[in-house]
Design a protein around this nucleic acid. Structure first.
Lengths: 160, 160
DNA sequence: ATGTATGCAAACCATTTGCAATGAC
DNA sequence: GTCATTGCAAATGGTTTGCATACAT
């Protein structure tokens, strides 16, 4: 991430901490920095590993606390999928369309700008909309062939 | 749920069990029936409670096993949301658009036919699409007012 | 000096697993 | 009789909590 964007984010964070009378701890800023350096989606485990690699050890509790803080101020977005939980820096307010294989759990991001534009135009009443996620569920081609292969084997066994 | 629809579902289930050489156990059919009688979304806990109320005790393991079976054949749909996991009978192959409040966790279903039609037309390559879910994230009006009230109180405290 | 934030370990909760017993075929 | 399915209890894994300590204000 660009350095001046990181600076902007730090500024937003500082303003938020001051406005809510929260303390400006080293942990909070270091975690924020690390999150900015993560590429795309990341798990809590991956974030922890990055911090460890940077020689900064934080407890799980602090990691969760800081993430909660960042989530509540919308600097980070959380994805809860059937196969795990991911986080992502949300400063761009990007929206997402995922194709999820319900067999192997693989997730691909679909780049369908048309679709995103439509959902973007939905304006719910009495609701502050922050973003949206579209999940398309199904079976990927690789799992489809595996299932066919398995069915064939059962059929063979039946003949025995 | 209508009796003859339940019958249809049982037939589909039986065909699936036979095709895959799975056993037709009392547990499986009883759980299927209970699921058909659930109204709308339900949690595993609620399903278990209903079965208990019907004097049918099943282990968690069997509940999860049967749900996995029903999920794999698309008779049931699973929703993993930040505030819990829900299931729903999926025989109508309905698609869904949810409005999720990230503060209180409340979920409302949006009836936006236009939106559903668009997503319906997305045809991913090399992927057997079974359905989709759209989550619109944000803050509901009731949580918005609570947040405003809280902010006012902090401001008062500051003045003291 | 005050009280918020942290670290640690224990607690928690939903889900999965291993294994012996049951029962569908 | 065979082996898939069940029930039980233990294990797992991610997240939260309680409490003593550290440190930002």
């Amino acid at each position: 991430m660009e350095v001046n964007i990181k600076e902007q984010i730090r500024t937003v964070f500082t303003r938020y901490l001051e406005a809510n009378k929260c303390r400006k701890t080293t942990e909070r800023y270091t975690i924020l920095d690390a999150i900015c350096d993560m590429e795309g989606r990341f798990t809590l485990e991956e974030l922890s590993e990055k911090l460890t690699a940077d020689n900064f050890i934080v407890s799980r509790a602090t990691l969760y606390n800081t993430l909660r803080l960042l989530l509540s101020m919308r600097l980070v977005v959380k994805f809860v999928l059937p196969h795990g939980t991911w986080y992502e820096v949300g400063y761009k307010n990007e929206n997402h369309c995922y194709q999820v294989c319900t067999v192997c759990g693989n997730i691909d991001e679909l780049r369908t700008t048309a679709l995103a534009a439509i959902v973007d135009n939905v304006r719910p009443k009495r609701f502050r909309k922050d973003g949206f996620i579209i999940y398309i569920y199904g079976v990927c081609s690789s799992c489809q062939s595996k299932m066919k292969r398995k069915a064939r084997q059962k059929e063979l066994k039946k003949g025995t």
